[in-house]
Computed example of a mutant assay.
Amino acid sequence: MRRTATVTAAAVVLLSAPAAANADPGRPVVLAANDLFTVISNLQTWLMGILASVATLFLILAGVYWATAGGDPAQVERAKGALRNALVGYGLAVLAPILLQVVQSIVGG
């Protein structure tokens, strides 16, 4: 009984004291840490990485399709389609900085 009372009292003391995370910083809290240029730059980096990754995946698929075609014309056409998709993906990854600069100029950055 005494042990339970001690643990309960300790819990009440710890929970009743204000935590440092809830303390008032004394200054306004800024929600946006980055300016527009930084956000667009980060978006450009992520977009180029994602597009290049997907294009690489399609390039690998095209190679697998072509290697396993065994002379089947339908499978070769499927490989050519995957290769075209990979090239389009790489093209978009290269054009991503230009497209994001257009968006930045429209938004006013």
Rank of each mutant, 00 (worst) to 15 (best):
L47F: 08
V88F: 11
G70I: 08
N34Y: 08
V102H: 01
N42K: 13
I60K: 03
N34R: 10
L51T: 04
L36A: 15
L83I: 00
L95T: 03
A19Y: 00
R84K: 10
I98S: 12
S41L: 08
V88D: 04
G81C: 03
G91N: 03
Q104N: 07
K80R: 10
T45M: 13
N42V: 03
V54T: 14
A74H: 05
Y65K: 13
Y65T: 05
L36N: 08
R84W: 02
P73T: 06
A32T: 02
A52W: 07
R27Q: 12
G81P: 00
E77Y: 05
G63E: 02
P25K: 05
L92H: 02
G26E: 04
L61F: 03
V94N: 06
P18Q: 06
Q101D: 11
Q104C: 08
D35V: 03
V76E: 15
F58R: 09
I50F: 07
A20I: 05
L43T: 14
A67F: 05
P28L: 09
G63W: 01
Q104R: 06
A17L: 14
L47A: 15
P28G: 10
Q44V: 08
D35T: 04
A19F: 01
P97L: 11
F58I: 00
A79L: 06
G49Q: 14
I40C: 14
N22I: 00
Y90L: 13
S53R: 12
V102F: 08
Q75F: 00
G63K: 02
L36F: 09
L95I: 09
L92V: 02
V102D: 09
G81I: 00
A96K: 01
Q44E: 15
T56Y: 04
A23Y: 00
R27W: 00
D24E: 09
R78E: 13
G91K: 01
N85W: 02
A82K: 01
N85A: 14
P18T: 06
A86S: 14
V94R: 11
G89W: 01
A20G: 09
Q101L: 11
L100P: 00
N34P: 00
P18M: 07
A96G: 03
A93K: 06
L57P: 00
V88Q: 03
R84F: 07
G49M: 12
M48Q: 15
A93I: 02
A79E: 07
F58W: 07
R78P: 01
A17M: 10
V88R: 04
V64L: 15
L87S: 04
A17D: 05
V76S: 13
E77D: 14
E77N: 13
I40Q: 13
A55R: 07
A96T: 02
W66D: 14
N42Q: 15
A67Q: 07
L51H: 05
R84V: 09
G71I: 07
D35H: 05
N22D: 11
Q44T: 14
A86L: 04
W46A: 15
L92G: 02
L57N: 10
L61I: 10
W66T: 04
A79C: 07
V29F: 01
P73E: 12
A19K: 01
A82W: 03
Q101K: 08
T68K: 12
W46L: 15
N34E: 13
N42T: 11
G63R: 02
Q75P: 00
G91M: 06
A19P: 00
L87A: 11
W46F: 12
R27K: 12
A69K: 06
L61K: 06
